[in-house]
Design a protein around this nucleic acid. Structure first.
Ligand code: ZN
Ligand code: ZN
Ligand code: ZN
Ligand code: ZN
Lengths: 141, 141
DNA sequence: ACTCCAATGTTATATCATAACATCTCTTGC
DNA sequence: GCAAGAGATGTTATGATATAACATTGGAGT
């Protein structure tokens, strides 16, 4: 993984914005929140995000086209497969990994002679809090 | 799952296009291939894709922003979690599921009291054929 | 001060997806 | 046959996400 450079000003601002948010943010949502800090164009956000994605401080959730600050940078600096559970009601994200799942997938890859580069593992659903809040009728979505 | 209506003309054309393709196609790539059949606007493609996604005949690969014909419609008419392995060199897609992985994830969900609605499980890498063709130096990407 | 390099700023454009509304084409009941 | 309704289709416009290309700035090292 990348050689842990210090964050630039723009990278720090983007990371702060994501960390402060309860839910994943699109690049344009980040841009809007950083207007007062001088951000004017999407590229400023995307460039900072590229660097943060490289170092693993931020993840992109493909299923949402949005970005989220990493919940545990220390753990998956390595090659671990990480899964994200996303509540479609409150937007909160749970980040977890399971070595048994990894092993099981590794077995498939070995059988097929497939070499893994990147993984995207995202689950959408409803968290316990949201289900309780909305009752047995389900969400008003 | 949906009540298996017959395919409309547009749906059939889109599905044929995807089935004929060796690799996933973006909606606009599908549109280009169907100009001669009278397709003029993206919505014609997206509408057909929506219907095909509903019935499970087509999958969207979020990590590629592209669509692929289902490799085994019969198997996952139910709620099975399906994983896609995508060769980033030749574009071919392997579709598979593993009940142990499902069980393992279900255990996590039960512990967190999280109710799953949809899953996105996509692996990018290199298939055996492409690695052999390109030698130990890796792909020319 | 000069040079270099990385980061940043800025404009324009590419790519992916949907809203809104008009029209067509069946089917069904009469 | 024919009117009414429903679903599918056609068309234009627009929104949302992401990148290309090039100019400018601001230190670090000499
Ligand atoms: Zn993380
Ligand atoms: Zn929730
Ligand atoms: Zn399938
Ligand atoms: Zn391949």
């Amino acid at each position: 993984m990348s050689p842990k450079r210090a964050l630039t000003r723009n990278q720090a601002l983007v990371l702060q914005t994501l960390t402060a948010s309860e839910e994943p943010l699109s690049a344009y949502a980040i841009l809007d929140r950083l207007r007062d800090d001088g951000f004017r164009a999407p590229l400023q956000v995307y460039r900072a995000l590229d660097a943060l994605l490289q170092t693993g401080l931020v993840h992109r959730l493909d299923s949402l086209k949005a970005f989220v600050a990493c919940a545990h940078p220390h753990e998956h600096a390595d090659e671990a497969m990480v899964a994200f559970a996303i509540c479609e009601s409150c937007g909160r994200v749970w980040e977890f990994s399971d070595s048994k799942i990894e092993d099981r997938f590794a077995a498939w890859a070995a059988a097929e002679d497939f070499v893994t580069k990147t993984t995207t593992f995202e689950i959408s659903g409803l968290c316990a809090a949201c289900r309780k809040a909305q009752g047995p009728a389900g969400p008003g979505v």
